[in-house]
Design a protein around this nucleic acid. Structure first.
Lengths: 402, 402
DNA sequence: TTTGTTTTATTCATCCTGTGAATAAATTAC
DNA sequence: GTAATTTATTCACAGGATGAATAAAACAAA
């Protein structure tokens, strides 16, 4: 992840390519309208992008059937020849993979069940590299240009280092360089909640204006924070570990070693573990339960199981407190609650809303819109792949400039 | 407060004038070194600033006494003729005023004891306007160009509206326009913690790089958050109401009407109130105690009063939790604890550090430097005045451009 | 005094970008 | 075939940043 300030040319270029990835093929006039650029500027920019072989003109088979007068649009889009990018997410005991072309269109995806916890760092990198190359091979990926990797924990996105992760058990793990050596590809890293936030904002223009706090609930709990559509970067160019804010002094145990973290109430592993405890099952594991197991718990709660209802009630309360803290601290314009955890939003909502109300000042609460976006892990690899693609766009531009 | 994106020219101009206000008179070469600009650009920029009458060349009385060879520097600085700006802070029962020239140098200051709580909005504006004009007159202010006003609460800095304030009891109060009508001057508004954060960052270059979270403890508790030296703006261009994050569900009463807010433990009024309660004094007020009263409480605690020590212990714990939340949410590069409340830092520190440690992940905690900056309310009016001056700089540039 | 040295400041030609206006191109409508 | 319409390019120009050359203002030394 480059962190140099972008020149105005680079910004324009990025905006243009972002718009194409979002909207699909566009004619030059349309690009101008989308971005508020003059036709002359668009012509100039696209000329060099065409020249560099990044874009190609589309063979227009005249889809309007001659209903529109005037010179027909020639739409521009990404050249197929540019190759592809692999996006990876390392979950608790699962690896999610996706292959996209340079336009960001899905080409293949799969997931692998494989616990990554407590592997040594060399072994971890071996396993990951092996999964990625196997996936590349089986999906017939040709000309892979980069790998984007999202994982839980605090990620130094500039250097591709996992500064801290509860899942990988890692401290300052130089994952990007380790995988680069093994795969021979540039590897770009991102925190997983950041990746999902980015993907969601790509689908909703509102979320790309102002400040958007995107709380992902699922495997863990993470926050992706966007300012004018770009990911917020903290120290060492990482995101946020909001999921490990400890709201309850003597709350349940968290994967991070602490107690009472937001995650320790809301994450799938936490709900699953606590549900097992209710049933007096032995030795609750910290492994990620499958979607079926979670659905079963939710169904049982919806059926009226009082102990489970209590669980969701407590989780909703924590969610309300969490969103309340975000509102009072950052005053975002938009708040998004997303991730697999939204499957139980109906169960969470009453206590969520009560806690949010108790936690926040009404006048400030009114400044933010809150929306729930159902989103699966797919969106996560989509986000990291998008970020990787933009990074490659930039590299190409700088390559040509030099 | 203008919120339009700045043109590159405007950015350069702002950086130049900021540097002059911080560093004092500078020669053109020195400006170039400070800002990493070419001599040609500096010459060009300063030429128009001199032309507009914003800067003047300094009459160099050759202070080096001829020890240095070569053409002597001609230093540039702000023209005296440009007039002055008044900075105001409205506290709980006190108004702080300051007059500065266009270079930001202090010309006069005073404070007025005057409770502002529970005044009607018209009356409030009358009182404020009257205080300000009396101050302008008595300090011999000539050619006042603007008033900068900092207050507690959520301030819409673009339109100068107090969206919410526990002190002024206001909801959507258009204070800036009301005062402008009464004073005939443009009035620029800012949240008080934001103003102090800005002032502190002007004095320490480190804090102007990366992300700085500046927690002001005093009359209330506020957060000023800086990204690359510029104030973070949330929805409606306000700052943060971090002081009203409710950390303890059944904690003490806060001025905002809630319970267990950070402020309800740490603010002067809270400590004073709780100290009175210990002594079984009747009817604890919410008025701001004077500095002497606070010093007395601190002295009594330092002398070993166990009940007071408990009070500071609880406050320190809340401070640690608060800083912990900031670290895990925003991963700032720098954290500053400032304001009059730092007077008791020795009493707060043990429980502060323990709570911080319990609240945060060591690897993440290590990413931020934490420093305590002793700072009085003076810095606050300094900050708001600085912001007002930069806004005027911008207006002047846009005036000339039109 | 004169000439050279040193440092500061300006000027100038140039590059880069972005834009409005004019022009060209490609199509439909009549 | 001509007019109308829409899309795309070209061109001249403006604004801003910069390196290089030049000018300016001092001191140092012969």
């Amino acid at each position: 992840m480059t962190t140099l300030p972008l020149s105005s040319r680079e910004t324009a270029r990025r905006r243009l390519l972002d718009a194409l990835r979002r909207e699909g093929p566009l004619a030059r006039v349309e690009i101008g309208q989308h971005l508020g650029m003059s036709p002359a500027s668009v012509s100039e920019l696209t000329a060099s992008l065409l020249d560099e072989g990044i874009l190609v003109t589309e063979e227009t088979s005249d889809p309007t059937g001659g209903l529109i007068r005037g010179r027909p649009k020639t739409r521009l889009f990404f050249a197929e020849s540019l190759g592809s990018v692999i996006g990876v997410w390392t979950g608790f005991n699962r690896i999610e993979l996706r292959l996209v072309d340079s336009a960001g269109r899905n080409r293949a995806s799969r997931h692998v069940e494989r616990p990554l916890r407590n592997l040594g760092s060399e072994e971890l990198m071996d396993v990951l590299a092996q999964c990625i190359s196997a996936f590349a091979e089986e999906s017939g990926a040709h000309n892979v240009r980069a790998v984007g990797l999202a994982c839980q924990g605090y990620v130094d996105t500039r250097d591709g280092i996992v500064a801290w992760s509860p899942v990988l058990g890692a401290r300052d793990l130089p994952l990007a360089s380790g995988l680069r050596e093994r795969l021979g590809q540039p590897v770009l890293m991102e925190n997983d909640a950041s990746a999902m936030a980015f993907a969601i904002a790509q689908r909703n223009a509102d979320l790309r204006s102002g400040r958007t706090a995107c709380l992902m609930v699922g495997d863990g709990v993470g926050l992706g924070f966007l300012i004018q559509g770009e990911l917020y970067r903290g120290a060492r160019f990482g995101g946020s570990e909001f999921g490990h804010v400890r709201l309850r002094r003597s709350g349940p145990q968290c994967r991070c070693g602490g107690r009472g973290c937001i995650e320790a109430y809301l994450a799938d592993y936490a709900l699953h573990r606590d549900a097992q405890l209710i049933d007096h099952r032995p030795a609750p594991t910290l492994l990620l339960p499958g979607e079926e197991a979670m659905e079963a718990i939710v169904a049982q709660a919806r059926a009226g199981d009082p102990a489970l209802l209590n669980l969701f009630q407590a989780a909703g309360e924590v969610l309300g407190d969490a969103v309340g803290i975000l509102i009072q601290t950052l005053e975002p314009d938009h708040i998004v609650i997303c991730g697999p955890g939204t499957r139980a939003m109906d169960l969470l909502r009453p206590s969520f809303e009560a806690a949010l109300e108790a936690q926040t000042i009404p006048e400030l609460r009114a400044l933010a819109t809150i929306q729930v976006v159902e989103s699966s892990i797919d969106l996560l690899t989509e986000g990291v792949v998008m970020q990787a693609l933009r990074e490659l766009d930039l590299d190409l531009a700088r390559l040509k400039a030099a």
